[in-house]
């Protein structure tokens, strides 16, 4: 079954243990300077944002039907059955379409390297595959970040919303956004305040291009036959005309327009 992360902002204490654990897992530098950065980047895959005493995590949402994986021409990005969206740097050619396509602006690029990679949270895919939870969930001291089966986490989130009327914004972010994500968020303040768009479509984004793309295999034979047919008709007329009245000009210019022949003769 598909795994997911449930982040409940009301339980978060901004200790940034998830940031530190994430950096360690992905072998990234983590010090006070990095801790102070409030943006995801190629060297910081998750970030805890703070507005007064309200907090919110940002990380790759690991969409159920990810735009990034759908647009990647070389399948360097892939959704695994366990949930994580993983990246294989050796396949990547650096077109950066994933960055343009991602509705959450997650994939980041190593702009200053000569052999650059796309960088993002991959939901600790190796740990998840081995049956362990993600590093961030492992490190969280309060249970604000919780790892588990997606279905069970959804039930739990719904229960929390039900049991605490008024405490939360009545919305599980990630339940339906762009077709659902493997990261689910609960918050007591509107998600927009931390840059999460709530106007996203509920359709998986890959549908938007696949609706067009899937027509192509049908179009090729159809186009070929139509064009071939037009060619046959337009040239047949000419052959018939030549049969009926064999003009001298066509002897010299076998498939040429007589008017062009005249022009040349001038």
């Amino acid at each position: 079954m598909s795994k997911a992360i449930l982040y409940d902002a009301t339980l978060c204490i901004n200790c940034k243990q998830c940031e530190a654990a994430c950096a360690e897992k992905n072998q990234l530098r983590y010090d006070d300077a990095v801790a102070a950065e409030d943006r995801q980047s190629e060297h910081k895959f998750t970030v805890v944002l703070a507005k007064g005493d309200k907090y919110m995590r940002r990380l790759c949402m690991n969409c159920a039907d990810p735009a990034c994986a759908s647009v990647c021409p070389v399948a360097a990005l892939r959704k695994t059955p366990e949930g994580p969206v993983i990246y294989e740097a050796s396949r990547c050619m650096g077109c950066r379409y994933c960055m343009v396509a991602c509705p959450f602006g997650v994939p980041k690029y190593e702009w200053n390297k000569l052999v650059p990679r796309v960088q993002k949270c991959t939901m600790c895919s190796d740990r998840v595959e081995a049956g362990k939870q993600t590093s961030c969930a492992d490190a969280c001291p309060t249970g604000a970040t919780k790892f588990g089966e997606r279905d069970e986490l959804i039930t739990e989130a719904q229960q929390r919303l039900h049991d605490n009327p008024g405490k939360y914004v009545n919305h599980i972010y990630g339940l339906n956004e762009v077709g659902g994500t493997s990261v689910l968020l609960l918050s007591s303040v509107p998600f927009e305040e931390f840059g999460y768009r709530t106007d996203l479509t509920r359709d998986p984004l890959p549908l938007f291009t696949y609706r067009v793309l899937s027509r192509i295999p049908d179009f090729i034979p159809l186009g070929g036959v139509v064009l071939g047919g037009v060619w046959w008709i337009t040239h047949r007329r000419e052959e018939v005309a030549a049969e009926e009245e064999p003009p001298k000009k066509t002897v010299f210019y076998p498939s040429s327009d007589p008017s062009q022949g005249d022009r040349r003769a001038k």
Binding site: V74, G94, V115
Partner: peptide
């Protein structure tokens, strides 16, 4: 391209769902 020497990759690494691939 970030890694221009990989420009030939679509030849063998296919993703028919990608417009860029097409």
């Amino acid at each position: 391209l970030g890694k221009p020497y990989n420009i030939w990759h679509p030849l063998i690494m296919r993703n028919p769902h990608s417009v860029m691939f097409e």
